[in-house]
Simulated scan of single mutants.
Amino acid sequence: MNFKQLFTEDRAVSPVIGVILMVAITVILAAVIGTFVLGLGDQVSETAPQAQFTFDYDSSAYDLTATHDGGDPIEANNLVAVGDINSSQAASEVEDDGTVNVAMSAGTSVVIETNAVSDPTVRLTWQSANSDKTATIARFG
């Protein structure tokens, strides 16, 4: 047996490594293409906006004014008022279920009618339009 020939001959190594590399590249490409075809690529990068709000409560009218002070803008219908809100609100900016119909950006305000309680608790919650993600943006009370 010639040991020198055994260590220098590598004919079978090259095809095996080539097949392994081709399978790995195929699996990676299939995963990337499958992610975007199934629509998962949009949800991966979706995060809640970062925004600051100030609140002004008028206890005589039970109105809570939420003002967007800065940060990321929030699209209409992605912001929901949750808590001690009046379910039959007269304000056209907020639906009966608390959905805010106004796109909120710096300087924009929305009036939320609250229940007749002394210290209402209201949360402004962001809801994603593409998935079931939610996040509390601001809280009063």
Score class of each variant (00 low, 15 high):
D58I: 03
Q43E: 10
L21V: 14
Q5F: 13
S92G: 14
F7M: 14
S45L: 02
T99W: 07
D69I: 13
I28A: 12
L29E: 09
N130K: 13
S118M: 06
V111H: 08
G70A: 05
G41N: 10
T114I: 06
G107A: 14
S14C: 03
P49H: 00
L64W: 04
V32D: 03
I112K: 04
M1N: 14
G70E: 05
M104Q: 10
D97G: 14
T54G: 04
S109T: 05
L6R: 09
V122M: 10
A138P: 07
A51W: 06
A129L: 15
E113S: 15
S131Q: 02
N86H: 09
V37T: 03
N78T: 13
A24K: 05
S109N: 01
G98Y: 09
S60A: 07
A12N: 12
Q127I: 14
T108M: 15
S105R: 08
S118I: 07
R123C: 01
M22S: 10
Q89I: 14
I20G: 08
D10F: 10
A51H: 09
S92Y: 13
H68R: 02
D96W: 15
A61H: 03
N101T: 15
P15E: 02
A12Q: 12
D42I: 00
L124K: 03
A138M: 08
L38P: 01
T35P: 00
L21P: 06
G107T: 14
S128C: 04
A106W: 09
A106T: 14
T125R: 12
A81R: 13
D69A: 12
D97N: 15
I25C: 11
V27R: 00
V110K: 07
S92E: 15
Q52R: 06
V37W: 00
T125F: 04
P73T: 12
I85P: 03
G41Y: 06
S87M: 14
D84M: 03
V13C: 02
N101Y: 15
T99A: 11
N78F: 07
V100K: 02
T108I: 15
S60W: 02
G41K: 05
T99K: 08
I137R: 05
Q43F: 01
I112V: 11
V117W: 00
V102K: 08
L38I: 05
Y62N: 12
T47M: 00
F55S: 00
Q52I: 05
L79R: 13
A135F: 04
V117L: 00
T67Y: 09
L40E: 04
I85W: 07
M22K: 03
I112H: 05
V44E: 08
Q50W: 01
M104P: 04
V102H: 07
E75R: 01
V100E: 02
T99Y: 09
T67M: 09
N2R: 15
P15A: 01
I74K: 06
T54M: 03
P49D: 00
